[in-house]
């Protein structure tokens, strides 16, 4: 099984006729994703890789089944596109755009929270359940990274996710669902908010969190472990352990000042509640073997 997206999830693509949208729609279908339709204003009547195109999301949901929407939309139009999907009743939305204005990102997250929707992103590769379906751009054919299995992965990064996930696969495991919450300072959905789904997924045995200095998302994972709402093993890797204070290193979300948000503080907190923290990417695989008794 998996969370968020699986082989039966019916997905709409907003911005399907664009170069990027069209290219990745083909690969999403290639993996097995059910793409039921697409949206580009003024292009209704066309088809893209077999998916019918509609002028608006409202038109699309009147004609085809869709429970999720994938946005290939530039950052300055992302707010509008997210609200259009929410307005049409869609509750799962993935946006890959990098550089959504922060005030708009707050509005998006606030709306998602109040409407009970789960918006993932921006500044992410998206969500993939290897061997089943994806919303985003993952070269799923690279087996040493995107191998199906029983480890949930949540990440703020792109390249680092490949580095760490390759270690998970090298250690003999695979991935149930990988969720890129994104590298921006205001991700629409936070690590801890995905934990209940991983907790309830009978085919996820443990979760790997690929975090970073700055912010409080890793601290919130520790809270979920501490209050008993998440009981599966957690292995965490964080970048920026030796980053100098005050420098804006890494993603926009990563700035540490005055001791709060440092990897050292996060490590202490996570370890105090029983999560395992890997100092190096390679150790993520080793720690998984330990916690899963392999």
């Amino acid at each position: 099984m998996s969370i968020y997206i699986e082989k039966d999830t019916k997905v709409l693509i907003q911005g399907i006729t664009g170069k990027e949208g069209s290219y990745w729609t083909e690969h999403m279908i290639g993996l097995g994703t059910q793409v039921t339709g697409g949206v580009t204003p003024g292009k209704e009547g066309q088809t893209v890789h077999g998916a019918p195109v509609y002028n608006t999301v409202r038109r699309a949901v009147a004609e085809v089944e869709a429970e999720a929407s994938m946005l290939f939309v530039p950052p300055r139009f992302t707010k509008d596109a997210v609200f259009e999907a929410l307005d049409a009743g869609i509750k799962k939305i993935v946006t890959v755009a990098e550089g959504i204005p922060l005030h708009e990102a707050i509005q998006i997250r606030s709306a998602a929270l109040s409407e009970g929707a789960v918006v993932i992103g921006g500044n992410t590769s998206g969500v993939i359940s290897p061997g089943q379906a994806m919303m985003g751009f993952f070269p799923y054919w690279i087996e040493r990274v995107y191998k199906p299995g029983r480890i949930g992965v949540m990440t703020r990064s792109g390249s680092l996710t490949n580095e760490v996930t390759a270690m998970v696969v090298e250690a003999g495991f695979g991935v149930s669902t990988l969720i890129g919450v994104g590298g921006d300072s205001v991700p629409s959905t936070r690590f801890a908010e995905m934990l209940p789904d991983y907790q309830n997924d009978p085919e996820t045995d443990a979760v790997v969190v690929i975090g970073e200095l700055g912010g409080t998302m890793e601290d919130e994972v520790a809270e979920a472990i501490a209050d008993g709402s998440f009981t599966k093993p957690v292995v965490v890797f964080m970048g920026g352990r030796t980053a100098p204070e005050g420098k804006k290193m890494g993603h926009a979300g990563a700035i540490v000042s005055g001791g709060s948000g440092s990897v050292a503080d996060k490590t202490k907190l996570l370890e105090s509640v029983g999560a395992r923290v890997a100092k190096r990417p390679r150790l993520v695989g080793e720690l998984l073997k330990e916690v899963l008794g392999d």
Binding site: L160, G183, I210, G240, T242
Partner: peptide
């Protein structure tokens, strides 16, 4: 000269280690 914010930051850590 690396790719990706997270990976570059990680390489920075490993160099210091």
């Amino acid at each position: 000269m690396c790719a990706g914010a997270g990976l570059t930051t990680t390489v920075y850590d490993l160099i210091n280690d």
